[in-house]
C-alpha cells in the first residue's frame, strides 16, 4: 500500500514555483500552487488529470473547464443526476464548477462523488486555477493515490460497521448534516474506502482522521463504508 504515497503538492509547488504567482493573477484570485495541494489532498485519489491515466473512481478531469457535463466517453460511473444535467446541454464552466465544488450535493443532488465540498470560496478559486492550468499538460499528475481493486472489492459487514461508526459519529452526524466537519452518509462505498485509505496512508492531511484511520484494517474500512452507505444523505 505504501508504495502509493505521493508528495504531490511538493512536486507541483516545485514545478510552478515563481511562475505560479504570475499566472494566478491572470486566472483571477486563485493560486494554482495551493490548488495543486488541494487537488492532491482532496481529488487525486479518485480523479486523474490525463485521459491516458489508469481509470480512477471518478472520470479524468483533463481539459475540464468548458467540457460538457458527464462528457468523458467510456466512463461508466456517471450518476443519473449528472447525465440528466448533460441532457440539458450543461457545460463545466467556471461558474458551475465553483458552485459544484463548494456544495456538490446541493448543486447536483444524486451525484455519486464522495466529497462534501470545499470549505471556502478561496479554496475553490485555488482549485479552479489549478484545474485551468493543469489542462494542457497533465503529465505531473499521474501519481494519484489508488486503492487496489481487490481492496475496493471487499464486502463490508454492516453491523460491524455500525459499531465502528460510533467512533465517527462523535463528530460526523448520522443525519448527514454538516458544518465544519463533512457529512459522510450515503457515500458510494468505493469513494468512502478510497478516502479512508488515503487518510491511513497520510495522503490526506487531517491529523485527526489520520490517527483514526491508522488503526483501521482494510476489512474495518469496508465495514464502515458499507454502514455509512446505508444512511441517507441529508437533503440540503
Amino acid at each position: 500500500m505504501r508504495r502509493l504515497r505521493l508528495s504531490f503538492g511538493v512536486v507541483l509547488a516545485g514545478l510552478w514555483g515563481a511562475a505560479g504567482a504570475a499566472s494566478a493573477m491572470e486566472a483571477g484570485t486563485g493560486d494554482p500552487v495551493r490548488g495543486g495541494e488541494l487537488w492532491a489532498q482532496q481529488c487525486a485519489m479518485c480523479h486523474a488529470l490525463s485521459p491516458a491515466a489508469e481509470e480512477g473512481l471518478g472520470p479524468h478531469l483533463a481539459d475540464l473547464i468548458g467540457r460538457p457535463v458527464a462528457g468523458v466517453e467510456g466512463y461508466a460511473g456517471y450518476s443519473e443526476a449528472l447525465r440528466a444535467l448533460a441532457g440539458q446541454g450543461a457545460v463545466w464552466d467556471v461558474e458551475r464548477l465553483r458552485a459544484f465544488l463548494r456544495a456538490p450535493y446541493r448543486e447536483v443532488p444524486g451525484t455519486r462523488m464522495g466529497f462534501g465540498g470545499l470549505d471556502s470560496a478561496s479554496d475553490t478559486d485555488h482549485l479552479i486555477a489549478f484545474l485551468t492550468e493543469a489542462g494542457p499538460d497533465a503529465s505531473t499528475a499521474e501519481s494519484g493515490f489508488r486503492v487496489p481493486r481487490e481492496v475496493l472489492a471487499i464486502e463490508g459487514e454492516t453491523d460491524w460497521g455500525e459499531f465502528l461508526a460510533a467512533e465517527c459519529s462523535t463528530c460526523h452526524r448520522r443525519d448527514g448534516s454538516a458544518d465544519g466537519i463533512p457529512a459522510i452518509t450515503g457515500w458510494d462505498t468505493r469513494s468512502f474506502v478510497t478516502v479512508m485509505h488515503a487518510y491511513r496512508e497520510k495522503v490526506r492531511p487531517n491529523p485527526t482522521m489520520q490517527t483514526i484511520a491508522a488503526r483501521l484494517s482494510d476489512e474495518e474500512i469496508a465495514a464502515l463504508a458499507a454502514y455509512f452507505a446505508t444512511l441517507e444523505r441529508a437533503p440540503h
Binding site: 462523535t170 465544519g180 466537519i181
Partner: peptide
C-alpha cells in the same frame, strides 16, 4: 472543525 465537532 471544532464547531463541527461540538454540533456533532
Amino acid at each position: 472543525e471544532s464547531i463541527g465537532w461540538y454540533n456533532g
